[in-house]
């Protein structure tokens, strides 16, 4: 068995294969439900209803999608330049810390929101600046440094929440003081549980798209990611571009944590992110690193999580099914995309 490249894949191949991947994912979900002892059709139905079946469910999905759009964009931007930022989780918490620092009395006016958002982005950028400088100056692998920084950052947050940032009224729980009203993101429509963070995420996606396609920096970034040798030969300042990309990526990831604190939770706790930084990688890969596509895949992934939560309340199937669904969706999609470019021949 060998792989042979296909020069021009047919439309049927390019549309059919991703659909087949989706179908295969559904079948895997069904089998998993069967193993758990439930009716697969009922389980799948409950996941769909739980994700988009009501206004409440849909808004919940969009809320969950908000941090995923930010981390997905952060990963998509970095990966576009072949900068392997696995540390969106750490950058997310950097943004969350700033939201608390600025939102618990440092400033008492509505101006606090934009100021704290900008500072959060700066903090996230700073977290990624170290690894990228180590990469460009000393050739240290950023996969290792960004990944390990996640754990350092989690421990730092844990220290803050047990120490200097601990809410004295928190009955001993490791969480921060609640944000003041001025520092909180309002809801888009009064009475509906969806905050402005979601709108901000959509704007961020459009901005990233414009940066990539229309600006000189975007061109440099894509060139560095597509062919480092050719980019360097053509006189593109590779190291500067990598640093700039890191600043953008870190800033975007930080907005995920910032909007979760300022828009949804209102305080910082250790369970702020159930791995949004890592899930952002799946979101970005499923979207083929396209920033507009990230919005769609983030909502899809959020839907699976929210739907699985609802399903597990109704059925006996554990929520871990969501993780397995996502993992298989990613694997099938990667395979489908490979098969749009090559075909398997015998011999």
């Amino acid at each position: 068995m060998r792989l042979e490249p296909i020069a021009n894949a047919s439309l049927a191949r390019r549309l059919g294969l991703p659909l087949a991947a989706l179908g295969a994912t559904v079948i895997v979900a069904g089998v998993l439900a069967l193993i758990a002892g439930a009716n697969p059709f009922a389980v799948l139905g409950q996941i769909v209803t739980g994700a988009v079946g009501s206004k409440f469910a849909l808004l919940e999905t969009l809320n969950r999608a908000t941090p995923l759009i930010f981390t997905g964009l952060a990963v998509a931007v970095a990966f576009k330049a072949k900068l392997w930022n696995i540390g969106a989780e750490a950058q997310l918490y950097a943004g969350a810390i700033i939201a608390v620092l600025m939102g618990t009395g440092a400033m008492e006016s509505p101006i606090v929101l934009p100021v704290s958002a900008l500072l959060a982005m700066a903090a996230g950028a700073l977290v990624l600046l170290g690894p990228v400088l180590l990469k460009t100056r000393l050739g240290v692998d950023e996969v290792v440094t960004t990944l390990l920084l996640n754990f350092i950052m989690l421990l730092f947050v844990s220290y803050l929440l047990e120490g200097p940032m601990k809410d004295p009224m928190g009955m001993g729980w490791p969480k921060s003081e609640p944000l003041i009203k001025d520092a909180r993101l309002p809801r888009i429509v009064e009475g509906l549980r969806l905050h402005w963070g979601f709108a901000l995420a959509l704007i961020a996606a459009v901005v990233v798209y414009i940066i990539e396609r229309r600006t000189t920096f975007g061109f440099e970034m894509r060139a560095v990611g597509s062919n480092l040798g050719a980019a360097r030969f053509a006189g593109i300042p590779v190291n500067r571009v990598l640093v700039q990309t890191a600043l953008l990526s870190g800033g975007l990831a930080a907005l995920a944590g910032w909007s979760e604190v300022a828009g949804l939770k209102g305080h910082l706790s250790q369970d702020l992110s159930p791995g949004f930084g890592y899930t952002g990688i799946i979101v970005a890969m499923l979207a083929l690193l396209n920033p507009i596509g990230v919005v769609g895949t983030a909502i899809f992934v959020a839907g699976i999580f929210v739907g699985s939560d609802a399903m597990s309340r109704a059925a006996v199937v554990p929520t871990y099914i969501a993780d397995m669904l996502l993992a298989s969706a990613l694997l099938f999609m990667v395979l489908a995309l490979l098969l749009t470019r090559v075909r398997v021949v015998r011999g």
Binding site: R222, A223, S226, N227, G229, A230, A231, F233
Partner: peptide, 8 residues
């Protein structure tokens, strides 16, 4: 490898 970027 150096003269062009094949995806561009």
């Amino acid at each position: 490898k150096t003269g062009t970027i094949s995806d561009f």
